[in-house]
Design a protein around this nucleic acid. Structure first.
Lengths: 162, 162
DNA sequence: GAAAAATACTTATTTAATATAACTATTATA
DNA sequence: TATAATAGTTATATTAAATAAGTATTTTTC
């Protein structure tokens, strides 16, 4: 008599064994955890992952235009507007009409914006340092390189093919 | 005269240099690409990333209960209901009242469900194989291990602290 | 130089994933 | 037996992300 491999007998543990072999599934799960922690950590600054990303890019690239920012962060221009609006309302950035192109806005972080960005950046780094503790720097660099190369490969190879 | 480091002079490229040093940011960007491709690849099977995950877990763990599935996939029970409903309506899985606990449902994949799961699984693997080509298997294993350990570290260390 | 096309941003709307809260039925606990 | 906890459901809210259409301006084309 064959014993069915039921949930009870397998203790239901590791029902996602198959999925765990996929890079995508693991990345989704890990990022979800990171995102949850990061969102909580940035809350005191009234920043979210998205608004911090935008602020950091603007602070690091004064005069950046909205369209370029959207491209950099891979978000739709349309979705950027509210984000930028909020940052501007809080006095963290300002919009200036681009001199060469009156359609466009050049974005600049204010002193307040740069300062808050710096604080947020430290929070992010410290958060990551906490859960990356014990992992050698070289491994982390390698991890980042690997993840970036996956992103690049998909953007380059996919879509073009089938 | 100091030349301001404006977007024009920096070509706006790499405004996310700072963010690129963060594991989380890179993971978000990479996963977004993966998810887009995977969603498209599964579309012919009328499966999404979420429904495939649920189907695979059920197929691999016959008799799994909904609550256990939700825990495994780290999604809310409430959000699982519609997912399971759809899979059941399509005849890919069936719900059976657990004999020992009439509150609970034991979930089983049907023959159709197992077959579709198999096809979807192949699609996922082939997709990943395409963008992981050139990366040695050992590196991929290491990558997955690293990502999983990050997930585990966060779940273990965070929340408990501060 | 004028018409047409493209670009930058905005607005409004939709979709999808996720989170939360309250409810019923059943089981476990005190 | 009363109480609390669990499994599933329903309804709702929040959020991120995608889409489509509109205005102003610039670029291209004839």
């Amino acid at each position: 008599m064959s014993i069915a491999k039921t949930a009870t007998s397998t203790q239901n543990h590791e029902a996602d064994n198959r999925l765990r072999q996929l890079v995508g599934y693991n990345m989704k799960r890990a990022y979800h955890e990171i995102q949850t922690e990061l969102t909580a950590a940035l809350k005191p600054l009234k920043l979210k992952v998205g608004s911090f990303s935008a602020l950091a890019a603007i602070a690091d690239c004064p005069g950046l235009k909205q369209s370029a920012l959207a491209e950099t962060l891979a978000i739709e221009q349309a979705n950027l507007v509210a984000l930028i609006d909020q940052l501007e309302r809080r006095g963290l950035i300002k919009r200036e009409r681009a001199r060469t192109d009156r359609r466009a806005y050049a974005l600049f972080a204010t002193a307040d914006g740069r300062q808050l960005c710096q604080r947020a950046d430290i929070i992010c780094r410290e958060l990551e340092a906490r859960f990356l503790a014990d992992i050698p720097h070289s491994d982390i660099d390698q991890l980042i390189t690997c993840i970036q190369s996956i992103e690049q490969r998909i953007k380059a190879n996919m879509g073009t093919v089938k």
